[in-house]
Design a binder for these strands. Sequence first.
DNA 1: AACAAATGTTACAATTTCTAACCTCTGGAT
DNA 2: ATCCAGAGGTTAGAAATTGTAACATTTGTT
Lengths: 138, 138
Amino acid sequence: MSGSQIRRSMPLFPISIVMQLTELSARQIRYYEEHELIAPARTDGNRRLFSLTDIDKLLEIKDLIDQGVNLAGIKQIFSVKEKQVITEDVKKEAEKARRELTDEDLRKLLRKELLNAGRFNNNGRNSMGQGGSQFFQR
Amino acid sequence: MSGSQIRRSMPLFPISIVMQLTELSARQIRYYEEHELIAPARTDGNRRLFSLTDIDKLLEIKDLIDQGVNLAGIKQIFSVKEKQVITEDVKKEAEKARRELTDEDLRKLLRKELLNAGRFNNNGRNSMGQGGSQFFQR
DNA sequence: AACAAATGTTACAATTTCTAACCTCTGGAT
DNA sequence: ATCCAGAGGTTAGAAATTGTAACATTTGTT
């Protein structure tokens, strides 16, 4: 399971292959790297080497571009999706807990939760600054 | 709790007030409505009336615009965040289950999970189409 | 070692897209 | 009836994205 993660992030493909797989131009792919949407590995000779994860990301980028989203937007979307991955992690564990419900699993779940607490800056502001009316409090 | 939800979505503010609160121009605010990022209510005389939810959204829009995200991107982000709310819902329930762990709660959790399953189109594609190599399977 | 093909970098240009500002006109409120 | 906030159309300027070309470097092959 962690092995497949390694495989998915293994740098394997030269840009020519990625162009075919994604139907993106080399220029586009380099541009997206320049703006830090992807970070392909490099060979000793400075050639890009893309992983499956990179390719998936490129396909997602292509989708969003088609929907009119600009690069800044895609960057934001990726960052909220990263959060999503973690909550989904918790979700999966909850699922497992539902099935098994051993004390050991519950301890693991709790531990993970605590580790992730406050890991991201919560961007949620509120229109009334501090000391907003109690009437409107969430 | 559901009461405060009602209050937060209650149409209260005319555009002039919203301009001050958000430091957005009227033209901008209308522009964002035109592109369906907000949907303020209207008075009998067709004037816009904004809720606190609208104002929060506008502040978030302002932030994202400042970060260079275009409207299409903001729209996507809003839709992703909606998902997030739901997974966070599940997360909260998982937290609760961890504390209480009654059979009843677990049944509720499961029910919610099943109800939300497939509620959103999962946009996740895979670089290898169908029949991709087992080697790379997630 | 030498050559051909692929890829990297950089610069310039062109095109497209966004967004804010300008402007006019309408309709509601006093 | 008048006044003014608000609605909506149009446009200009800026920014983003991609294409193209020139030239350097790497890779693989013979």
